[in-house]
Every structure is written in structure tokens, then in C-alpha cells.
Write a protein that binds this DNA or RNA. Structure first.
Lengths: 148, 148
DNA sequence: TTTGCTGCAAATAGTTTGCAGAGAC
DNA sequence: GTCTCTGCAAACTATTTGCAGCAAA
């Protein structure tokens, strides 16, 4: 994983190369996605930016997140309840472990994964382009607070 | 995997045990989900049932699919584009391989999976309840038709 | 007869779109 | 000065809900 500052620089550079305008709103959205340690939702990005840009619009957040997704610089995590959160640090597919109580997301190391992709390609004849591998459960903290 | 007729019988038995009414609509929805070889969407179930029940309502399909999900008799497959499809044959989590061109869904055998769950539980301290493991790619047929 | 289910219509939530003015280059 | 982007409001889509009548048990 690239360091967050680098990820931000990479994204800005892509905007430049594609002759897209570097508006303050766009840069701020990119910065949140690249630097955030968590996995913010569109709503969270919007709330955070309203402090700086009083006229910030949800539509602008949606448009720019879509743009970054299309560049492959943001990974969309879609949850069973239909909500989406975004990862700008590791924009490539990787497994997640998600707490269904508190919403925490952990990224486990799971080296066996690459082999599985090949295995599946071989077995099914598909050309595999991407995947999604998420575990749902209860994190250690929530397990403990249940016991109270 | 139980044979489809058995799956249907199991579901009907659950309705009975829970003192839920065996309405013709409910039974028809359960039957489609249990017997269908594909992975129908709510819309598809609805379209199919309109032929038999001219007054069939989408709300009824949604309500009964929800019911079956809550019993663990139907697995929801949610796609990146936000659409949902349902599997009543194998209602437990299992991997899918999905063609992004034609929408075909294949269920590969993937025995390594159980070990991975334990591995992840150990590494993260989570109590893992369920998971989702989907591959996206292009099926053999669509690969060939591209070449034309 | 009782209770829960269905069908309809309205409500809801998340996301997208059209358009006019603002701002990046 | 040009052309894209933003902000706003309206549109849209998938799903859920309230309610009155209907049907299963």
C-alpha cells in the first residue's frame, strides 16, 4: 500500500493528465478518500466538507467519487444493507472483515487469495477481472461489550 | 445441496411451524425460489407470477422474499450496480462467479474456503458469522462472442 | 371468527440528472 | 474567453409502509 500522501499525489496527477479541472471541491474529496484511514461513506465525506465549503452539494461528492471509481483510484465497498463506503488507500480488491454491530472494517492479510482466483478461472473458464471477498461478524470489542 | 423439491418442502414446513398462512401467493414465491435453477430478481419473480395472479403486487414479493431471507432459506446476492438476486437452492454463503456481460452466475466448488474463515477469525479476533465471496469476469461464451 | 396477508398507493432513501451561473485554465 | 464544474432542485429507482378489504385457519 502506497503511503496516503502519495495516493493523493497520484490522483491529482491523473486529474492533470486527463485535463480535468482541479477545483477546490474536487481536491478536497480526493484528499479525504486518499488520506482517510477509515472507509468513509458519501454522506460522511459530504458532512466533513460542509464545514469548509458551506455550499457543498451531495451531487458533487457523488460525481467525484464516481470519477475516482472509474479511474480505479477508489474501491467501493457495498454493504448488504445497500449502503456504500469507499477506500482510497487500497483501491484494488482486497478482503474485508466487517463488524455488523459497530461497522468497523479491518483489512486482513490473506495471501492465499491469488491462488484462489487462478483456481476459479481454471475451473469455470471465466476470465476473472475482479472479486469481492468480505467477512461479516462481530469484532472483539463488541463481543466483550455484549457480555456486560 | 438438497434437491429443489426438498427445499420447497422444507420451506413450507417452516411456514407451518411458525403458524404463517399458506397463501397461494406465498407458496408460489417460495416455489420459484426453491426450484429455480437461476438466481431470479424480485422483478423477475413478480413478472413470472403476474401470469398466474393478475393482481400480484411487487410489495408481496418483497415481503415474502424478506421473510424467506430471515428464515435463512434464501440467500441474497447483491451486485455492485445495486441490483439484488436470490438463491433459494443453496441458501448458505458460497462463492459466485458472475459474468459482467451477460449476467450469468456460476457456483464454483472451492473447498479451501472453510480454512480461510478460520484463518481470518484467528487473525482478526472477529467472530465470523457469514461471508460473501464473488468473482466478476467474463464467461467463456462472452469471451468468444467478443472475438467476432 | 380471528388473525395475518394482499394489493394498492403513498412514502422513503440513495443516487442521478438538467440546467444556469461560477470558476479553472 | 472557453469549457468544465458546481449547486440546486427535480427526477428516478428500488424498496418499504399504512391501510382497508380479503382469505386462511
Amino acid at each position: 500500500m502506497a503511503n496516503p500522501q502519495d495516493r493523493y499525489a497520484i490522483i491529482v496527477e491523473k486529474f492533470r493528465k486527463k485535463s480535468l479541472k482541479l477545483t477546490p471541491q474536487r481536491l478536497a474529496i480526493a484528499k479525504i478518500l486518499a488520506l482517510s484511514k477509515g472507509h468513509p461513506s458519501v454522506e460522511e465525506i459530504f458532512e466533513q466538507l460542509k464545514k469548509t465549503f458551506s455550499t457543498m452539494s451531495l451531487a458533487t461528492v457523488y460525481r467525484n467519487v464516481l470519477l475516482l471509481k472509474s479511474f480505479g483510484d477508489v474501491l467501493e465497498l457495498s454493504f448488504p444493507d445497500g449502503s456504500n463506503r469507499y477506500d482510497g488507500n487500497r483501491p484494488y480488491p482486497h478482503p474485508h472483515v466487517i463488524c455488523i454491530k459497530c461497522g468497523a472494517i479491518v483489512d486482513p492479510a490473506l495471501d492465499a487469495l491469488k491462488d484462489l482466483t487462478h483456481l476459479v478461472a481454471k475451473e469455470t473458464g471465466f476470465q476473472i477481472l475482479t472479486h469481492r471477498f468480505d467477512f461479516f461478524g462481530i469484532c472483539r470489542r463488541c463481543q466483550n461489550s455484549d457480555k456486560k
